[in-house]
Design a protein around this nucleic acid. Sequence first.
DNA 1: GCATCTATGTTATGTTGTAACACACATAGC
DNA 2: GCTATGTGTGTTACAACATAACATAGATGC
Lengths: 135, 135
Amino acid sequence: MRTHAQHELTKNQALVFGSLSEAGGPLTAYAILDLLREDGFRAPLQVYRALDKLVEFGIVHRLESLNAFVACSHKDCTGHGSAAFAICEKCGDVREFTPDDAVRLLKDWTESQGFALARTTIELRGTCKDCVASG
Amino acid sequence: MRTHAQHELTKNQALVFGSLSEAGGPLTAYAILDLLREDGFRAPLQVYRALDKLVEFGIVHRLESLNAFVACSHKDCTGHGSAAFAICEKCGDVREFTPDDAVRLLKDWTESQGFALARTTIELRGTCKDCVASG
DNA sequence: GCATCTATGTTATGTTGTAACACACATAGC
DNA sequence: GCTATGTGTGTTACAACATAACATAGATGC
């Protein structure tokens, strides 16, 4: 696949990012650790250190309300705005989207308060279309 | 003070809510536990069970990105909309606000996707006005 | 009385995340 | 070459956050 080549990931970073990409959904750090034991991972720090960098690069997002991590769903992560996530509490599916208008309003509020916004966490919990239909 | 009398809090709920109200800012569950040891608290579950109810009542909010809890800043918590939080990473101050317009846009997106929205987590990280000025 | 529901107390355990220290490897400057 | 520096890595131990399981107590409704 060779996506995100712009970052020249290290071995551990590539393994962690690969796990998340292949999973296609959120994984906890310890779930990643278990997946990567066959690749020689032994300790949580190996995962957390890689995750820190991947989040810094913007190609992995942390889901605060799940204590989990997910690969960015954009083909090319350079320069997109703040991400938001719709999390289905039935099936665990996570949909990433970029609510620029809503973020603009939030940023307007912070500016009116003199608050220097660094980053946003927007996570929506509920039930996805498929799970609503099936039950 | 006798705010939130509508909920008839139990003894433990009242103690936990009192700690948060008096703190005037976010506290972790274990910080609350330490504050309430003199009142007979011995185990984390005593705190977590009270917090679960207080969050359910809507008079305490959980800050996912801090693993902490904060008393709702509204005088009367009945019927207000989804809350958002501006969290200063310098001084730890938390400001609660109610971004109805932004939430409306987020809800519009979920509805367009057939996603049944149950609740929102909106947490803004950055630097507050005072810390920007002093640093 | 007694069934039921909620709140509570307690012990133990599970899950998530970091501190501290050592070593390997690359590269820039001398 | 060789050393200083920065980053990535490996490992042990531990801190911080949260819940399972089981027992007890009190209130309410029949």
